[in-house]
Nucleic acid binder design. Sequence first.
DNA 1: CCACCGGAGTGGTCCGACCACTATGGGTCG
DNA 2: CGACCCATAGTGGTCGGACCACTCCGGTGG
Lengths: 233, 233
Amino acid sequence: MDEEAPQKGTVTQRAIEEIKAMIAEGRLEPGQRLPTERDLAARLGISRSSMREAIRALTVLGVLEARHGSGIYVTALEAGDLLETFGVVADLSRGPRLVELLEVRRILESTATALAAARITEDQLAAVEKHLAAMNATDDPEEILAHDLAFHREIAAAAGNETMAAMLEGLSSRTFRARVWRGYQEEGAFARTRREHAAIHRALAARDPEAARTAAAAHVGEVEEWLRAQLRA
Amino acid sequence: MDEEAPQKGTVTQRAIEEIKAMIAEGRLEPGQRLPTERDLAARLGISRSSMREAIRALTVLGVLEARHGSGIYVTALEAGDLLETFGVVADLSRGPRLVELLEVRRILESTATALAAARITEDQLAAVEKHLAAMNATDDPEEILAHDLAFHREIAAAAGNETMAAMLEGLSSRTFRARVWRGYQEEGAFARTRREHAAIHRALAARDPEAARTAAAAHVGEVEEWLRAQLRA
DNA sequence: CCACCGGAGTGGTCCGACCACTATGGGTCG
DNA sequence: CGACCCATAGTGGTCGGACCACTCCGGTGG
């Protein structure tokens, strides 16, 4: 009864599944510290090298966190931890795939903005306004970009769904870099963006979900259309 | 001009960024074969062990694919490749996070179903009907589950957005397992699911996007509500 | 011409050593 | 007595080399 020889795939893959299972079954709680690499390797009967590969894999997935000199820990398993990789996906997508990604973003962003309009608090609204004002007060592209991102991040947070907010975060980084490049080519893009942001803010302040949904959809759709046109060229 | 000492983070992390950059900048095309592990390690001045960790990390992200005895290749970078990890996220999410995930699925699934209603071809509709019929013809939970998944997969595919379809695929595996468990407890769940599926199919056949959106939202919302109730208990 | 087979090359695994960092506890100084 | 400092044990990080398992291709013999 020695439970040998499952032997499916690589030993590293097996180790990954093993640790995932430990977490899924609750044998490992969020924040908890794991045994040492050497222990884990011995326990599964594999070498430390292979175990390290497994740990590294789960680290990039945002499931584990290795602290040099201290130990390996399970992350909080919050949406932000796990969906960080989502940004990588967005960064590596190109062509038609990028348009699809933007379409997804349009759907989620418009819904999130609509939810935010219904739920946003005064404090959160003030934060949104702060970034809106800062965005309009400068013409340094880098700074505008930062406040633009923060603007949408605040709104997503106000929607009350952390998972959705984390996904939107990932869907934005690449998108926004593209928009900067866009500003280079198309004059008037900044002014249009400013109007769109103002419309979104108006809808939020008025607590009007439908107007917020429409404004957000138009905002993202604008970029989407431009990207579609670029691909045809 | 020897370009030394960036030295940020671990060498493995640097290697990961390096390869990601190669792909992002187009120096590596989808499907292309990479240099050998030994070459890559030498090129970046790191050990093979560290390079292997980097490769393993990008492998689990669906960016690279290692073929034993042959070489390392860049994947097609299709939505399905990159979003496979999305399922892991869903599997490891629990409690409130799971409800949020389901909320995201409701939004995407309803939109996808609406899009499908407008675009679905006769062939695709036939495939949907096939799974609907098969689902109703058996009472083996496993088989029902399989056809249920396929039912929604066909619809997502008909929506014409591969990225969205891949995300929904990841959002389903965990969800559906939960529903099976649900069937154990709540009588009538199967019958209700059957009605909901029929409503979705009706909307698709009628090419009625709004009806499709509503039916799909209700379908997912049903599970969502049940899960919310479970969490309160 | 084809089937077979061998070797070269590749990823997969393992080992053992050492480095870099952290945390802990005991000793020291104020 | 208390706060500080530092030696040290333990942990993850890196390295190099050895060997195994598999794939692929070209030569060889039928």
